[in-house]
Amino acid sequence: MSNALPDRATMTVTEAAEVLGVHRDAAYDAVHRGDIPSFRVGRAIRIPTAKLAALLGLAPPPHP
């Protein structure tokens, strides 16, 4: 996978780690600290793509 933002509304923590260029464990730590915006769907953690893009100063990908 590339480090480009996915064209979906949310991404996994692993995908966010790849976008950020950090290890998956570091991304989970940042989620738990509140440094990366996230929410839970059951046991799954999802990262809103638009919020991560805004945090990075990027334009969010267009929605289909």
Rank of each mutant, 00 (worst) to 15 (best):
V31Y: 04
G42P: 03
P64E: 12
H23M: 02
L58H: 03
L52S: 01
K51I: 06
D35C: 06
V13I: 06
A54P: 02
K51F: 11
M11G: 07
G34V: 06
T10A: 07
R24W: 01
L56F: 00
H23L: 04
R46L: 15
L5Q: 05
D25P: 06
A50Y: 03
R40H: 11
R8G: 11
N3P: 09
T49V: 14
M11K: 10
R8D: 14
E15T: 10
V19E: 00
L55R: 14
T49P: 01
T10N: 03
A53C: 07
R33V: 02
G34E: 07
T12G: 13
I47D: 00
R43M: 10
A59G: 03
A30K: 01
R40E: 11
G34I: 03
K51V: 10
V22N: 04
A30F: 01
G34C: 05
T12K: 09
A59V: 04
P6H: 12
A44D: 09
D35S: 08
H23Q: 07
V22K: 07
A26Q: 11
Y28A: 02
R8V: 15
G21C: 05
L55Y: 09
L56C: 06
H63P: 06
G57M: 06
R46K: 15
A53T: 04
E15V: 05
E15Y: 00
M1V: 05
T49S: 02
A26D: 08
L56D: 08
R8A: 15
D29S: 07
P48M: 06
I45N: 04
R33H: 02
V31H: 08
Y28M: 08
V22L: 08
R40C: 10
A44Q: 10
A17W: 03
G57S: 07
F39A: 13
D7G: 12
A4P: 01
D25V: 14
A17H: 10
A59M: 07
N3R: 13
H63V: 12
A44S: 09
I45P: 00
R33I: 00
R40P: 08
D29M: 05
L56I: 01
A27V: 15
A59W: 02
A9P: 10
D25Y: 12
I36M: 09
A4T: 09
E18L: 13
D25S: 15
S38F: 01
